[in-house]
């Protein structure tokens, strides 16, 4: 057992946690924030993606004890706090970028993190460049988030709209 303090969506929580507890289970089981999903618990699907200090991370791969003092944003905290949607959330609705919705919170957090990530990716021609987010760049950078319903075409369109 260990005592930690984490800020989640702007609210500070001090708790005593089992050292085996993942950040994902802390969110879902202890804080009742079930927006972050568990698709594999092994870092293989991206359903649990949250922002830790602004960077996208798989919450299932982070032990809660390692998040002491960190700032976590989940899908519940993406909007403006008054019920208004993040532009990505609105775009996902507009472009029907989900079906069952189970991968969606992870897709949204991942996309939000991706939009601020600089630098080239595996599909960038010139590795010295900070490329524009073309559909090919978006597809490459969003490939850590699986969608078994196969909503990728619409996910990429939705993200493209927000990038512009």
């Amino acid at each position: 057992m260990a005592e930690i303090t984490v800020r989640v969506n702007g609210t500070e929580h001090s708790l005593i946690v089992d050292t085996r507890l993942s950040l994902l289970d802390l969110l879902r089981e202890r804080l009742g924030l079930t927006g972050s999903k568990k698709g594999c618990d092994h870092g293989q699907c991206g359903a649990c993606t949250v922002l830790i200090d602004g960077r996208r991370s798989n919450a299932c791969l982070a032990l809660a004890v390692t998040c002491d003092g960190l700032d976590v944003t989940t899908v519940e905290g993406l909007g403006d706090g008054d019920g208004g949607l993040h532009p990505l959330q609105a775009a996902f609705i507009e472009h029907d970028a989900f079906q069952c919705g189970y991968c969606t919170p992870g897709q949204l957090c991942s996309a939000a993190g991706m939009l601020t990530e600089p630098g080239p990716s595996a599909v960038t021609e010139d590795l010295m460049e900070d490329p524009p987010l073309t559909p090919a760049e978006i597809r490459e950078r969003m490939s850590g988030n699986l969608c078994r319903c196969g909503a990728y075409v619409n996910i990429v369109t939705a993200i493209e709209g927000v990038r512009r």
Binding site: T34, Q89, I93, D96, G101
Partner: peptide
């Protein structure tokens, strides 16, 4: 839009394991 679209993009939609 999908009836449950808002719930699904905000994390409010509850799946089986998520009932308290």
């Amino acid at each position: 839009n999908r009836v449950e679209a808002y719930d699904k993009v905000t994390g409010r939609a509850k799946y089986a394991y998520e009932y308290g």
